[in-house]
Amino acid sequence: MSSSHDSRGSQNFEATGDYFSLDDILATQERIPCTFQTEVLNLGYIDPSLDSSNIPKGTKLELPFWLAKALCSRRKQCVTIDLPKHYKEVYRDVFNADANVVDLHKLGPYFYRFGSHLLHFEHPESPDIAKSLLKVFQARFRDIMDASQNAYDQDMSKMTEKLDEMEKVIFFHGQKGLKDLQMWETREGEKIKISEMVINHRKRKRTHLDES
């Protein structure tokens, strides 16, 4: 059906089609304002405010991306989509002014991923969105890189809470690199450590005991 299906056989789901990727599932759950171009029988229950059992032509509904995509194929368009407001020109102007101050987590949290999914619809504004996504990322990347490479053992939650999920991954990878380097320099690297899962398992047990 879609490209996501074809990639199921490939090894790296993260980088390619993401059929099994939880992030991608979450991102494709975001809603898009849609207008129905045809009547849909017996599915009126989707919108509780509709009285009839059918969805009449012209109904405006916010559908999740995966549904909108299925109904918006080139062959027969059942719905037309409108852009979510965070990707409209007003917001693009805001990003242009200064992308660094925007709280992408609030607008997303899968701002880039969802944004690139939106391009599938071939909306007239798609090229502008694509350009804007790239620009926003370029503008913000410097700060993220800077923080992730230089903040050692500091509370960065103020900064990370404004990051999109993809930016967060980049940030934490950078932090891990920094920490690993630090470990190597202090010769901590050769020490055999207790495994992460065991630690978390213990912590859990402890809170469990505290509660009871």
Partner: peptide, 22 residues
């Protein structure tokens, strides 16, 4: 006129399948 409804349900089926498999 049946087809839009069928398509919607089919999309929901595919989606549920994907969620459970993931």
């Amino acid at each position: 006129e049946m087809f839009p409804g069928i398509r919607m349900r089919h999309a929901a089926l595919e989606r549920n399948k994907r969620c459970v498999l993931a």
